[in-house]
Measured scan of single mutants.
Amino acid sequence: KAKLLVLLYAFVATDADTICIGYHANNSTDTVDTILEKNVAVTHSVNLLEDSHNGKLCKLKGIAPLQLGKCNITGWLLGNPECDSLLPARSWSYIVETPNSENGACYPGDLIDYEELREQLSSVSSLERFEIFPKESSWPNHTFNGVTVSCSHRGKSSFYRNLLWLTKKGDSYPKLTNSYVNNKGKEVLVLWGVHHPSSSDEQQSLYSNGNAYVSVASSNYNRRFTPEIAARPKVRDQHGRMNYYWTLLEPGDTIIFEATGNLIAPWYAFALSRGFESGIITSNASMHECNTKCQTPQGAINSNLPFQNIHPVTIGECPKYVRSTKLRMVTGLRNIPSIQYRGLFGAIAGFIEGGWTGMIDGWYGYHHQNEQGSGYAADQKSTQNAINGITNKVNSVIEKMNTQFTAVGKEFNNLEKRMENLNKKVDDGFLDIWTYNAELLVLLENERTLDFHDLNVKNLYEKVKSQLKNNAKEIGNGCFEFYHKCDNECMESVRNGTYDYPKYSEESKLNR
């Protein structure tokens, strides 16, 4: 008799109507990190870190770059004969040098303040090359056809396309004075040089004057150069050297050249137009028929994500570079809930034993079982409120962090190594801060989002509990077992918050 009662009780308990509160689960393989956990499985997430590029040089917003090819900045601007293909260059979106560009200054020497000139050019998007001192009329008392084997072109001695090597005419090199007034309405880049012979005999042979000088002056520039005559090792078949100089001439300003020898005179100059998204990159990537809004030396990035880990040097509207390998923000729920887990921000989770793959029309909802059958029903209101809140948060985070910009490298010469090392340390410090901030932001927001979901499920549970009161009992896994019969209409009233407690209280009292 006792065995019969136990079996009867078990049958009745199993047959009781139930309603459970749960949440969506799926077959997603997404994982995120939080402050407290690593690799948390979630139903949905968004990636904030771009880690792919196309490996190509592309047009930037429809404008092609200027590819210097086998030449570098120095060779292009001075007019190395091997860089003749660059003479027609007028406009570009950015400038590309190759790491091993070999054609710079063909006659050995240095372009002074080269690093600063590169910085200036990094904001130039177009130029006009014009004859600042016409070759045939500007130097009537001097020979202007100086050439050298060091600047050979097609097997013949030649010289820079933008400079003139002035030497004596006959047996004399009379003092020369020439000036140019900038009437271009924009900055003009003027380049010139000073020749330093290897011996007094060479000085006399070329310029006749043993104590020659070169003077260059404008409103913002004033220097006097004296040739340094000295024996030097042979470089590119030359014992002599040429140093090259430049200045930016403001609109309306005048530049005056005065010399008694050794002047490498300007022939062509450049009127410059600035462009905020221009820059110089060093890259071996090849040019393709493609378009982008962000270019790196590795390749083009076409992404609206706020961060990238491809390269710190970028041109155009680019994500911020960070050292992170993963920045994924959760938008959905835990896919593998932890039992009795309390989140960092106070939300209680884990009283549900598992997510439901059968509930596909919402994030949170119900599963019921009664004599009429069983089924899932999503709670659309709480789901939609959660979707709206999380979507707004993700968009806000992306908008705040998605300050796209150009980031170019800084140039230092060989004598500025300590400054370069200090600059690298400062840049590394800023990069570490950006990386830390980005990672911390994602970790915190992921923790908040998961706790937010847990709290929403808990609130749904409490909503049902407050309606049923003692007409049902909690069975410990997020479910309630009714003390009365609850048909589909009754189940719907529980879900929509209109459950009639008094209607079922007498039946429940008897069954309790």
Rank of each mutant, 00 (worst) to 15 (best):
S28W: 03
N222I: 13
Y160G: 01
S138H: 11
C106P: 02
D84W: 02
Y23C: 10
A64T: 10
T74M: 10
F133V: 03
V96D: 06
E250P: 12
Y245E: 07
V235K: 13
I21E: 04
L272V: 15
T98C: 02
P99R: 12
Q120C: 06
V190K: 00
L48S: 07
H53V: 07
L48W: 08
W192M: 08
T167A: 02
W192Q: 03
D15I: 07
E128V: 09
L206Y: 03
F270M: 11
Y221N: 03
V40R: 03
N47I: 02
R129F: 05
N182I: 02
T14H: 03
L77K: 03
A10N: 11
Y244C: 02
V96S: 01
G104V: 04
D237E: 14
Y245M: 07
E116W: 12
T167H: 08
K38Y: 06
D33F: 11
T143Q: 06
D113H: 14
L78C: 04
T18P: 00
Y114S: 15
H239W: 00
F133C: 07
P140F: 01
L77N: 04
T148S: 15
F276M: 03
A105P: 15
I280H: 01
A64P: 11
R224A: 09
S205Q: 06
H195M: 03
P174F: 09
W76N: 06
P197L: 02
I112N: 10
P233C: 02
D17T: 02
E119Y: 10
I35R: 04
F270S: 03
G146A: 12
S179M: 12
N72S: 15
S52P: 00
C58Q: 15
R161P: 03
E82P: 00
L206N: 02
A259D: 08
I19N: 09
N80S: 13
N47W: 11
S278F: 05
G210T: 11
Y23T: 15
N141Q: 12
P227V: 14
E128C: 02
F225G: 00
A230I: 10
D17G: 15
K135L: 13
P233E: 09
W267M: 15
I35T: 14
S200C: 03
E116N: 08
K175H: 14
H196D: 15
S28P: 00
G279F: 03
L60Q: 01
V42P: 08
G109K: 06
D33G: 11
K156H: 10
G185S: 14
G22D: 06
H195D: 08
A259W: 10
L249S: 00
N220I: 00
Y180H: 08
N178L: 07
V235N: 09
E97H: 03
K135V: 13
S122R: 06
P108A: 07
L4C: 02
W192S: 05
R90K: 07
N27R: 01
G261H: 06
Y160W: 11
L163F: 12
G170H: 04
D113W: 10
N209W: 03
L7V: 08
V124F: 08
Y23E: 08
S200I: 11
T247R: 07
W92V: 02
T31K: 06
S158R: 02
D84G: 07
A2L: 15
V194Q: 01
A217R: 03
N209S: 13
D201I: 14
E128Q: 04
L206W: 11
E187W: 10
G252H: 13
S45Q: 05
A105F: 08
V96L: 09
L87T: 09
S157W: 06
W165R: 13
E136C: 00
I229A: 09
F133S: 02
E131S: 10
P134F: 02
G104W: 11
N39I: 03
R224C: 10
P233T: 06
I255Y: 09
K1P: 08
P197N: 08
D33M: 11
L272H: 00
T226W: 14
S152G: 14
N162C: 08
N145K: 06
W92S: 03
P140N: 10
K234D: 06
Q67A: 10
S122W: 02
T34S: 15
D171Q: 10
N100V: 02
L36K: 01
Y107E: 05
R241K: 09
A271W: 00
K169C: 06
L272A: 11
M242T: 08
L189Q: 10
A41K: 12
S157V: 06
N26G: 07
L7F: 15
E115M: 09
E202R: 13
A16M: 09
P108E: 06
L248S: 04
D113G: 08
E277F: 07
S45R: 01
T43F: 12
I255C: 00
P108F: 01
S205T: 14
R241G: 01
E258C: 10
E97V: 12
N211C: 00
C151K: 11
R232M: 06
L191G: 02
N39F: 03
R129C: 08
E136K: 00
T260P: 00
A41D: 07
G185E: 14
S123K: 02
P81E: 11
T148K: 07
N27C: 02
I73N: 01
V46I: 14
R154S: 11
W76V: 10
A212I: 07
T254W: 07
A64D: 09
P99A: 14
K38W: 04
S172P: 03
S199Y: 07
I256R: 01
I95H: 06
K175T: 14
G275I: 04
K135T: 13
N182C: 14
Q204A: 15
L57E: 10
D171C: 03
F270A: 04
V149W: 14
S215I: 14
P233A: 10
E82C: 06
N243P: 03
E250G: 13
G75R: 01
C83Y: 03
N209D: 05
A265S: 12
A230R: 04
S218A: 15
V190T: 01
N54W: 06
V216F: 06
L191C: 02
T167W: 04
F159M: 11
S273P: 00
R223A: 14
L272G: 00
N211Q: 14
K169E: 13
L117T: 05
E97P: 00
Q203S: 04
H153D: 10
I73K: 00
E115S: 10
T282Y: 02
S52M: 09
P81N: 06
E131A: 05
K156S: 13
S152H: 00
H196E: 08
Y213V: 07
R274L: 05
T143D: 12
H196S: 12
T29R: 04
L48I: 13
D84T: 13
S198G: 05
L78H: 02
C58K: 04
V42S: 06
L127T: 12
Y244N: 03
F257N: 00
I281Y: 08
L249E: 01
D33N: 13
V214Y: 05
K38R: 15
C106K: 08
H239P: 13
T167C: 09
H53L: 01
L5Y: 07
C83W: 12
G69V: 02
N211M: 05
Q204G: 01
P197H: 13
R118A: 05
R274D: 04
L7P: 06
E119S: 11
L127V: 13
G55E: 11
L68F: 04
N183H: 05
P65F: 05
H153Q: 13
L5M: 13
L248A: 02
D17P: 04
E119F: 08
D237K: 10
E128K: 04
L7S: 14
P134N: 13
D171S: 13
H44W: 09
Y114P: 10
T177G: 09
T148E: 01
V188M: 11
A41V: 15
P197Y: 10
P99T: 07
D51L: 11
L60I: 15
T143S: 11
A212W: 00
L7I: 13
D237H: 10
P108R: 06
N54T: 12
V235I: 15
N220P: 00
S158A: 14
V147P: 03
G75Q: 04
I256C: 10
S199M: 10
N178Q: 14
P88V: 08
H53C: 05
S273V: 15
L36Y: 10
L4I: 14
Y213Q: 11
N182Y: 05
S122K: 09
E97D: 08
R224K: 15
Y244W: 07
R154D: 03
V147Y: 06
S152V: 11
I255L: 15
L86F: 00
L176R: 01
S28D: 00
Q120N: 10
V124L: 12
S28H: 11
L121Y: 02
E250T: 12
A230G: 05
A269G: 15
L121E: 03
P140L: 11
L8V: 11
F225V: 15
C83Q: 06
H142K: 01
